[in-house]
Amino acid sequence: MSISNSTIAAGDAPAASRRPSKVLSRRRRKIQSALVAYSFLAPNFLGFAVFTLGPILFAFVLAFMHWDGSNAITFAGLDNFWRLFEDKVFIAAFWNTIIYTVVSVPATLACALGLAILLNQKIFGRDFFRTAMFFPYVASLVAVAVVWNMIFNPEMGPVNMILYTLGLDPKDMPGWAADRHWAMVTVILFGVWKSMGYYMVIYLAGLQGINSELYEAADLDGANSWQKFVYVTVPQLGPTTFFVTVMLTIQSFKVFDQIYMITQGGPGTSTLVLVYHIYNEAFISWDLGYSSMIALVLFFLVLAVTVVQFRRQRED
C-alpha cells in the first residue's frame, strides 16, 4: 500500500507542482478504494485469524511445551522432538503416511485422468457416468464407508464372493480392513475411489482446453492414439497435472477421516498415519505438546514436498 502510493506520488511530482489538489484527491481516492477492499476482506480474515492462524501459531509454541490441557503449561525445550525418535508408533505412522501418499497420489491421478479421457469421448450415457464417478466425492463419508466395509467384508462381502467364484482358495482370501497386510490397500483403494471423481472433473476441464488442431496436426504427422496421448495430451495437461498432484499430495499427507471410518488405524499400527497419531496423542492421551510436535513435523513435510513440486514446475 504505502509503497504503491509513494511511487505514484513520485511519478506525479511535476504535475504535483502545478495541480497539487488533483494529486491529493487521486491519492485519497486510492486510499479510499483500498479501505473498501480491506473492509470486505475483514470478516473473512477475522475468522481465519481466530480459528486457523491463531491455533497454528499456538501449536508452534506448544510443540516446545508440556501441556495436558488442564494443568499449567511448562516449558519442554526439545524434549518433544527427541521423543519422536524413540516413539515406535510415530515412526510407523510416518512411514505409513509416506506409503499412503506415494501409492495413492499416482493411483488417483491415473484413475482420474483415465476416467476423464474415457468420459471426454462421445459415448452413450456420458453424463450419467460423469455424475456416477463424481458422486463418491460429494457423498457422506460415513455412509459410503459403511457400504465400503460391507462390500469388502472378508466373510460375506461381494468382493470376496466374486474372488471365491473365480476360484481363489478361501485360505488365501484377503481379509481387507481386518488383515494387517491388506488394510493399507483397502484404505488406499477407498481414498482413490472417493476422490478420483473430483480430479476427473478437473482433468475434463483441462482436456477440453486442448486445441483440437494439435491432434489433427499429430494425425497428419502420423501419430497413433498412444503417441497422441504421450506427445500432445500429457504435455498439454502439464499445468493441470501439477495442480492435481499438489492438491492430492497435501490431501494424502493429512488423510485421517477415511481411516478413522474404516480401520481406526489398525490392525495394529498397519494403517496408522500421522494425523491419526496426532489425534490419539492429543485427544486420547491429552499430550498436547507432543502432538503439536508431530503436527510440526507433518507441516514441514508437506511444505518441503510442495516447495520441491513448485520448483520442478518452474523448471519445465
Binding site: 488442431e213 489433427e216 497428419l220 501419430a223
Partner: peptide
C-alpha cells in the same frame, strides 16, 4: 485412407505447433 497415408501435409490457420516442443 487415414491422413498419414495420403502423402499430404497441412499448414493450419493457427499454426498448430506443438507448444512444448
Amino acid at each position: 485412407v487415414p491422413s498419414k497415408d495420403r502423402d499430404i501435409a497441412m499448414v493450419f490457420q493457427n499454426y498448430a505447433l506443438y507448444p512444448h516442443m
